[in-house]
Simulated scan of single mutants.
Amino acid sequence: MNRYERRPPTPGEAQLQYLDGDLRVIRPGAFVRCAVTGEPIALDDLRYWSVDRQEAYSSRDAVMTRLRALGLA
């Protein structure tokens, strides 16, 4: 399989390491869970995460909810 071919997603929840502008797959899977809402986020749809807290977020609203809860917004 070359680097441009997509593998079928592994079912279940993935474990990722969130980096600045990138992700590292620790355990393959089809989705991660939003740290605020708990809803599943398909890896292709993941746009928001925190490097410092190593959390994924489903939307900008979820990010703001987390920041407000931490007293940072």
Rank of each mutant, 00 (worst) to 15 (best):
Y48M: 03
T65A: 15
L67E: 11
G21S: 03
R7L: 13
P11C: 03
Y48V: 01
W49H: 13
M64T: 08
A62L: 02
D52Q: 14
C34T: 04
T65S: 14
Y18S: 02
A69Y: 00
M1Y: 11
D61K: 13
F31M: 01
E39L: 11
R3M: 10
A35E: 10
Y18I: 07
D20L: 10
A73V: 12
E13S: 07
I41S: 07
T65W: 09
R6Y: 09
V51I: 13
G71V: 05
Q54S: 01
E13H: 01
R3S: 13
R47D: 07
P8M: 05
R68L: 07
I26K: 12
G12Q: 05
D52R: 15
G38V: 08
D20G: 03
S59E: 06
S59I: 03
I41V: 13
L46S: 02
L19E: 08
P28W: 04
T37D: 10
T65P: 04
R33M: 00
E55C: 14
L23D: 00
R6P: 00
P8I: 07
L23T: 06
G29E: 05
A56T: 06
S59K: 10
S50C: 15
S58H: 08
G12V: 10
Q15Y: 01
S50V: 08
D20C: 01
L67P: 00
P8Y: 05
Y4E: 11
R6N: 06
T65D: 14
Y48R: 09
E5T: 11
A73E: 12
D52N: 11
A69P: 00
Y48K: 03
M1T: 09
R33W: 00
S50N: 10
G12C: 06
Y48A: 04
I41E: 08
A73M: 09
L43A: 01
D22R: 15
L46C: 06
Q15V: 15
E39T: 10
A42R: 14
W49L: 08
R53S: 14
R3W: 10
Y57E: 01
D22L: 03
L16S: 02
S58L: 14
V32K: 02
M64C: 04
L70C: 03
R53L: 15
I41P: 07
A62T: 02
D22N: 10
V51W: 08
M1C: 11
P9W: 04
A42S: 10
D22T: 05
R47E: 12
R53W: 14
T65L: 13
P40V: 03
A30I: 00
T65M: 14
L19H: 01
A73Q: 10
P28Y: 07
T10V: 15
L70F: 05
I41T: 05
S50R: 09
